[in-house]
Design a protein around this nucleic acid. Structure first.
Lengths: 330, 330
DNA sequence: TTGTAAGCGTTATCAC
DNA sequence: GTGATAACGCTTACAA
């Protein structure tokens, strides 16, 4: 007995519409076809509930309308927001999003790239600090926040400019004794420029500053606490402004300062980096350099899907902006 | 040496290994084959860098090793963490994750489901409050936090138990005048039980309480503020404990209370719901009922991928736990 | 313009 | 166990 319970195929639509198989195909590929035929095909497809089988199509065309997203995580507010904007930007161009969460594990990251070569995606948008990652330049790849090589386009926020902006703002708000705090993995890609920009301005303006860079996530908080304690004498901190490499760090430092009896922003002003404030709540707020997440996502997608891949930029920096958030005296 | 510019195929491997095509296929499907043959195939595949083409395989088998995730967003800390755990749980079972962000738009949600029927995924894990969503019971679907019908398994936290737990804790911490605050969309699925559990305990213990449920996200904050102001006389709030339906709300209320000159937790204690504290920073912390996100994800995946789909549970509630976080007097 | 037929890379069915 | 061969559903020359 012929079990016709399977999903309808083009053949079924062709039979139903009384046209040839090729005609149905053309209709679904927007290839010009006689209007009367087109109508009959559309009607028949609707009646049968026909949907193109993307796997058969992909087999033929070697295009899958799918882009792989490789991210360290999505439970971090910045990465989560980025993933969301990327997903949205891709769906606007009728692309689906294959999500890979790597935990920054180099092995996992490399495996994801292999999977894409297995014909499962048309391109990759990746955020990875893995120094040894092998990226085939023939494979469409856009890197976010990490420069690989001239052949691999990198989209990033203007981290240098953001660092400069933070320093300028703190100085114009009256700070004269600054510090830059940074934690996170050693290979921090473009984000490392934040500190560079900060230093540039401090030197140019002749404002004293110190830089504390910690790579180990675990111990970093203790180091910062010790540093702060060492800079308190007679209950008074001899710093009046701190630029933190991320908002999360800024919020942590803020709590630490309050524990140490320092008032923010009265005694010391704080500026973070990222612009993650979807929490919307008073407690999770800080003055910050806002990354243009939506624009970052849109640009990455545009570059990845660009038809002409012969002359792609190797680095695009997008403008950041300062936003007050209660940890500065505005 | 004839270098084929295309990616190597099974045929190439067969030729290289000097075996038949079918033998190669068997090797890659773990079907018993002579060990000497197997070795030659593996070696040839390695040499050529052969990878199975999943699209061809999917065409043949109608299985894609892909699961679609339908979520309202991933920039919300709870959804982000959930997405991450789901992605991880799926990859543990060698499944890929297709991410759909819907913004709770019913049209988008319905379209995602259609896409899966287009043969692009083996199943769906969805978190949607869309009341009119049509879910084909033949299509593997697991719903998180929203009960659809007996044929559609739903995995959720024990929201009722969590609400009870919150009330019990607040009462045991000395509160005698309680309130429950809730905001968010009207169709809140299982999460609505949080308030029910809270009320159960309050009534059972004879503790006075009020319930404020707001559906509109925008106006809700004003309503809560007005409510609080109305309950302050002579600078003193006549409530000593508030249970909020989410951590985000709890943090907002906390900020609001501080603005109104009320101390948390000295004057009034606060308990939220979700357990989102990956921020790790002092400011973004509250006592809360923690949802077992990893377990939620693992259970959803296990149920979705269960071979025998004849006797699936229609609702699974996972245990929650209380965690102190500075907004209660412990 | 429309219809026909040859694959795309894999799996599955057979004889051997 | 092994090795040809026919699908799977679709695209795309090419023929009509």
């Amino acid at each position: 007995m012929k079990q016709k319970s399977t999903t309808p195929t083009m053949k079924d639509v062709a039979r139903e519409a009384g046209v040839a198989l090729g005609t149905v195909s053309k209709v679904f590929n927007n290839i010009p076809v006689g209007e009367s035929y087109r109508q009959r095909v559309v009607e028949a497809a609707g009646k049968l509930g026909y949907q193109v089988n993307q796997y058969a199509r992909g087999l033929k065309t070697n295009r899958t309308n799918t882009v792989a997203l490789i991210l360290p995580s999505v439970d971090h507010p910045f990465f989560g927001a980025l993933a969301q904007q990327l997903c949205l930007a891709l769906s606007r161009r009728s692309y689906r999003t294959l999500l890979y969460v790597t935990g920054s594990n180099p092995e996992v990251e490399q495996q994801c790239i292999r999977m894409v070569q297995q014909n499962k995606a048309d391109g990759i948008i990746g955020l990875t600090y893995n120094p040894g990652l092998e990226v085939d330049e023939a494979l469409p790849f856009v890197s976010i926040d990490r420069y690989f090589s001239p052949g691999v386009p990198c989209v990033a926020s203007d981290n240098l400019g953001g660092g400069r902006l933070a320093a300028e703002r703190l100085i114009s708000l009256g700070c004269r004794h600054l510090a830059f705090f940074r934690n996170g993995p050693i290979q921090a890609g473009e984000a490392d420029k934040r500190g560079d920009g900060f230093e540039q301005i401090c030197r140019a303006r002749g404002v004293s500053y110190e830089v504390i860079r910690i790579n180990d996530e675990e111990q970093s908080l203790e180091v910062f606490r010790d540093y702060l304690i060492g800079h308190i004498s007679n209950g008074k901190l001899d710093l009046d402004g701190i630029f933190c490499s991320t908002d999360l760090l800024a919020l942590t430092i803020r709590g630490m300062l309050e524990e140490l009896g320092q008032r923010v922003p009265e005694d010391v002003q704080l500026v973070g980096f990222d612009g993650i404030r979807q929490f919307g709540s008073e407690g999770c707020y800080c003055s910050t350099i806002v990354q243009p997440i939506a624009q970052l996502a849109q640009t990455s997608v545009d570059i990845l899907l660009q038809e002409d891949r012969s002359a792609l930029p190797s680095l695009i920096c997008l403008p950041v902006a300062y936003a007050a958030g209660g940890t500065t005296r505005e």
